[in-house]
Each structure stands twice: as structure tokens, then as C-alpha cells.
């Protein structure tokens, strides 16, 4: 499956919907979207990965790159993911300590609201 990307804003949060496979071939498209969002002033990103079938270290690199960019603007990049196959790679790489990972968009929105 190819990669499908979409995004919308809810309050101050930009929710990025990702569906399909994030790998060395498709990851540049996600990178471009994250850069574009940050360049347009969206500094609080929530990436919904519930429909991601595959994620490799190239995809992790793009997410880390996005996190670096939003942090430069005191922003945040958090994830929604409950799939064990995806969570496993975050655990192996230690990135569970770097990203906020939530079980649902609502849970992430609630946590984000409390941080305000």
C-alpha cells in the first residue's frame, strides 16, 4: 500500500492523518508535509498512525526531524498509536522516551489541553 496523508486543524493542534507504509520510498512525502506545516506556522502536531501498516527507521528519522523543527518554535510533535507492530520499533530504538504516544486522538487532545 502506498502512503496517504491528510491534515486538519483542531484548536491549536494540527492533526496529521497517515495511512499506509512509511519507508525509504514514501517517507520523503511525510517529511515534506511536516516541513510545510511548520513553515506555515503549525507548531503543535499530532500524527495519527493508527492506519500505518509499516514504519521503518527512515520513517522514524522523518518524525524525529519534525520534532526537532517544532521544538525550535517551542512546539510539540506527538503520536497516536496502539499497534504493537509499530510501537515495537519505537521501543527498540528508545524513541518512546522522546515522543508522547497516545492511544487515541481524544486522549492526546485532552493531554495537550492540560499542558496549556
Amino acid at each position: 500500500m502506498d502512503l496517504k496523508l491528510d491534515h486538519h486543524n483542531e484548536d491549536r493542534l494540527t492533526i496529521v492523518e497517515v495511512e499506509g507504509e512509511i519507508d525509504v520510498y514514501t517517507a520523503p512525502r511525510l517529511r515534506e508535509l511536516l516541513i510545510d506545516l511548520v513553515n506555515k506556522g503549525n507548531f503543535h502536531l499530532l500524527v495519527n498512525m493508527e492506519k500505518v501498516d509499516f514504519l521503518d527507521s527512515t520513517g522514524l528519522g522523518v518524525l524525529v526531524g519534525g520534532l526537532k523543527r517544532v521544538r525550535a518554535h517551542d512546539g510539540s510533535l506527538e503520536l497516536v498509536c496502539t499497534q504493537e507492530r509499530i510501537l515495537k520499533i519505537f521501543r527498540i530504538t528508545g524513541l518512546t522516551k522522546v515522543f508522547g504516544i497516545y492511544a487515541s486522538v481524544d486522549e492526546a487532545k485532552e493531554a495537550h489541553g492540560k499542558d496549556k
Binding site: 522514524l60 524525529v64 530504538t93
Partner: peptide, 23 residues
């Protein structure tokens, strides 16, 4: 040690091998 500032967008080439070793 994981240091966000040291990670590039394309990630370290050795990182993929670390993932393989974990899998």
C-alpha cells in the same frame, strides 16, 4: 546515547542495523 540534536532527518545509517539487531 540518544540525543535528539545529533539525529539527522535521514537518521544515522547505523540505526537501521540497531533495529535489525533488535528484531
Amino acid at each position: 546515547p540518544l540525543d535528539l540534536g545529533m539525529l539527522s532527518d535521514s537518521f544515522m545509517s547505523g540505526f537501521g542495523i540497531a533495529v535489525i539487531a533488535g528484531l
